[in-house]
């Protein structure tokens, strides 16, 4: 799978570790961290560089903590 197409930035203090994004991620990019945030939740993070920027994780996130990035499309010549 192509690498570096997309990225997910997690707002760590806000994440509640519900793992809905982890279960929904089609490329198994996301996982719950072994670390905890200020509230004691195992927050979500990118575990693999396989993100395609599809945004399904942010569709499922109840707390809107995910910002999804996708590689800009090269301009047609």
């Amino acid at each position: 799978m192509a690498k570096g197409l997309g990225a997910v930035v997690v707002d760590i203090p806000r994440c509640k570790g519900c793992s809905l994004c982890v279960a929904a991620c089609p490329t198994k990019t996301l996982a719950l961290s072994r670390n905890i945030n200020q509230k004691g939740f195992n927050y979500a993070e990118m575990a693999e560089d396989t993100c395609t920027g599809c945004g399904i994780c942010s569709t499922m996130c109840p707390d809107a903590v995910l910002t999804v990035y996708r590689a800009k499309k090269p301009k047609a010549e």
Binding site: E45, C51, G53
Partner: peptide, 30 residues
Amino acid sequence: MGIEVSLEGKEIVYKRPKALTDAVTHYCPG
């Protein structure tokens, strides 16, 4: 530990909507 990914050359396709405040909701996880 999570991995560090460069955001260079990438554009935002989804971000937190402006009509939500910065408050953390009291709702249970999920």
